[in-house]
Design a protein around this nucleic acid. Sequence first.
DNA 1: GTCTATACAGTGATAGAC
DNA 2: GTCTATCACTGTATAGAC
Lengths: 238, 238
Amino acid sequence: MHAFASANGPAAPRRRDGPERRAQILATAAELFAEYGFEQTSMREIAKRVNMLAGSLYHHFETKDDLLHALIRDPQQQMIRENERLAALPVDAELRLAATVIARFHQFSANWHVHVLLMQEANFYRQHAEFSYVQSAKNQASLVMTRILDEGIAAGLFRAEIDSYLTNATISQMISAAAGRLRQGAFISAVTGREYGLAAVLDHTLDCALRLVRPAARIEAPVRRAEAERLVGDCLGR
Amino acid sequence: MHAFASANGPAAPRRRDGPERRAQILATAAELFAEYGFEQTSMREIAKRVNMLAGSLYHHFETKDDLLHALIRDPQQQMIRENERLAALPVDAELRLAATVIARFHQFSANWHVHVLLMQEANFYRQHAEFSYVQSAKNQASLVMTRILDEGIAAGLFRAEIDSYLTNATISQMISAAAGRLRQGAFISAVTGREYGLAAVLDHTLDCALRLVRPAARIEAPVRRAEAERLVGDCLGR
DNA sequence: GTCTATACAGTGATAGAC
DNA sequence: GTCTATCACTGTATAGAC
């Protein structure tokens, strides 16, 4: 009944050690935070899901806020860097805009919970100075996209009348909202019951974004999605 | 020093009575809920702002949830009814779509805090069965707008290729987001510092909405905002 | 690295005096 | 209609045994 491990070599660990435990806690926390909100999720609940007691979490993270920082800080920074790399590509503004939209969806589907957390806890970040970097990063992302829009206008690719700031706000919102609706990787109409996958939603979002910026003459031009996809893949190395 | 009120007639009330007190509590609660979130706002905090103690609130409202119900239930119902009235007007679908967008902004600016509450506490409503009517009402609103879109497509006013459900989701989100950014009745760009008033944001949103649905041939047609405004004014009696 | 036990502040809600 | 006082509970976080 009781099989013993061989005497040499490390014994099977009764309590999981090191970084993998930390990662497990982070993943669980991300899930709960995204589902119930940061402040509505208790340390006790997180602990229960990873089979430990609340007090033990404090061996891995100093405070609850720390846990949140650890979840969002790096992914958001990486997102900004990727956006900047795409914005600097030597292709026309429309292709860079398309690549940005696509990249955002990739980032989202690769790290679903964290990105939900970034958008839906905006109130919390605004009220806690230690999280002000979240808003700074969002402003930075706005700046990058605003510049793409302005360059597109200057090049005659986008309508001259658009207000790049309002348009950026609208498009960014559109992306976040569309991605946010993809809760379990799909999005089910509450009215018709029909289901929309990531590809369909991305397609629709991309189409909408271009429709907002294109001049009448180019409104029905092809979307060049495949080219933009390839650009994203090459530039971000995937 | 001590002036007495005349013996007849009601004495000056030392503690404010009746419905006005209730209204004051509701207004204060709406403000705090919108600013800090429903669950992050304590009954003690609400009480402090209206100069009473937490226990006394329970003379006016049975529970904290009750307070929230009292805030959102009627305004949301009214919003739906207004949307339905507008959708039934005997004018073309595009004008009805424009009127819907405009009405939504009116509703929002007339009752700022409540509408913020309706959009930003979606997680909470989803998790508490007693608030399921919030989602039902949103679905109802979706249905109304989806029908406008479908009728516009059938009439050849809108593009035949649009998916009315996804497009409705996008436009609704656009309206909510735009209105939500108008926190203090205006919206200040974090990048350029430039300020946008309600009129400018409404203008932009309306333009975007029409741009998403119009076929290429009518993409630059005039927006008929004045006509839509008048329609809203007449239909909703303002 | 995890557990036990606990400190301490804050929560929604109630009972009864005034 | 409001206040005082309090209950039962949950929250984050800590100290020290194992």
